[in-house]
Amino acid sequence: MNWWRTLFLVVALAALQYPLWMGKGNFNEVRLSKKRVEIQKQEVDKLERRNKAMSAEIQDLQQGQEAIAEIARDEIGYIAPGEHFYRIKNK
């Protein structure tokens, strides 16, 4: 008679543990969700840094011609009137 109680308790415990290990929202899903959240946070941080850099560049472009001239020099070799261009070649 006592072993029936033990068997019943073991089966009840297993039934209660099943959702924790195999059901929706189990330990593995929670761990994977936390990992996905961390990856998303890293991506958001990276995009925020990029947005701040772009905002600073936009502000520079709106405020003065120096930023525009600097970009033109870098990208298309712009030389302003009165400037001298020197090219230094390494051996």
Rank of each mutant, 00 (worst) to 15 (best):
W3Q: 06
W4F: 12
R5C: 02
T6A: 13
L7I: 08
L7Q: 11
F8Q: 05
L9K: 11
V10M: 11
V10I: 15
V11G: 05
V11I: 14
A12F: 15
L13Q: 03
A14T: 07
A15Y: 10
L16S: 05
Q17T: 10
Y18K: 10
Y18H: 10
L20R: 13
M22L: 09
M22G: 01
G23V: 07
K24R: 14
N28R: 12
N28L: 06
V30R: 15
R31W: 09
R31K: 15
S33Y: 09
S33G: 09
K35A: 10
R36P: 01
R36T: 04
E38K: 14
I39G: 01
I39Q: 13
Q40V: 09
K41I: 12
Q42C: 06
E43P: 02
D45E: 14
E48C: 08
E48P: 04
R49F: 06
N51P: 00
K52R: 15
K52S: 12
A53M: 13
A53V: 03
M54Y: 11
S55L: 15
A56R: 12
A56F: 07
E57T: 13
E57K: 12
I58G: 03
Q59T: 05
D60H: 07
L61N: 05
Q63C: 05
G64D: 09
Q65A: 10
E66S: 13
A67V: 01
I68C: 05
I68V: 08
A69Q: 05
A69N: 08
I71L: 12
I71S: 02
A72G: 01
A72Y: 04
D74R: 14
E75D: 09
E75S: 14
E75A: 06
I79V: 15
I79L: 10
I79C: 03
I79G: 01
A80Y: 02
A80I: 01
P81D: 13
G82F: 00
E83W: 03
E83D: 11
H84F: 09
H84Q: 12
F85L: 15
F85Y: 09
F85V: 02
Y86I: 14
Y86H: 12
R87I: 06
N90S: 07
K91Y: 04
K91Q: 06
